[in-house]
Write a protein that binds this DNA or RNA. Sequence first.
DNA 1: ATGGTTGGAGCCCAA
Length: 262
Amino acid sequence: MKIASWNVNSLNVRLPHLEQWLAAARPDVVALQETKLEDARFPDAALAALGYRSVFSGQKTYNGVAILSRMDASGGGALEDVQVGIPGFEDEQKRVLAATVNGVRIVDVYVVNGQSVGSDKYAYKLRWLEALHGWLTDELRRHPGLVLLGDFNIAPDERDVHDPLQWNEDHILTSRAERDALDRLHALGLHDAFRLLNPDARMFSWWDYRQAAFRRELGLRIDLTLVSEALRARLAGAGIDREPRTWERPSDHAPAWVELAV
DNA sequence: ATGGTTGGAGCCCAA
């Protein structure tokens, strides 16, 4: 079971890329972020034509998440027990969507960016991460086999940044408080699949559009796939697919994926 | 060097 995450930075613009990538990579489940589409405009018919069911929670201009699931020959791959948002956490911003596919709980997150350390948005990011942690504590009791994936807007450690001096513990996306919040998610038994299988790899998932960052390999690994303790024994592979970042008019993020053995 | 690029809205904001 191949489960992927991709921040598409506008599904309206990136639908052709998503279609091309689905046809080539054939993931069973895909968690999307930054769809930037109201639900009425979500291209569910186009995705169904490629064999994918979809659930989505979007808004105009900003944010927006979706989960796609590939229909198999016997009509499987249903998206069940769909949850929109973090229960009990009031938020206008559409950043969280969960569903169960073939017995695996999929939790898709578009974590708050936070802008800069000390800003109002940074405070919102830390509040938001605390609410996510509280909910996942309960969610893991209900669904021990869980994959938490998405754009975390946090680079876990030095191996995940091109320049640790610039991306230091006072900088947004790498600050001590953000990494502490990620560590609290790890403490729930949610393991970073990519890092577990590739302890020494320097591979990024996001490159700024500016300063030719992709060409110069000035990236960060902020798109993560975390697997619960109960799924750890099934972990068969994890990676980042850089290729779509080389295509014309790309998203600034590359898809990150994890493979679970049946 | 406090820069630059993209997307979406609407004559700037978020990333």
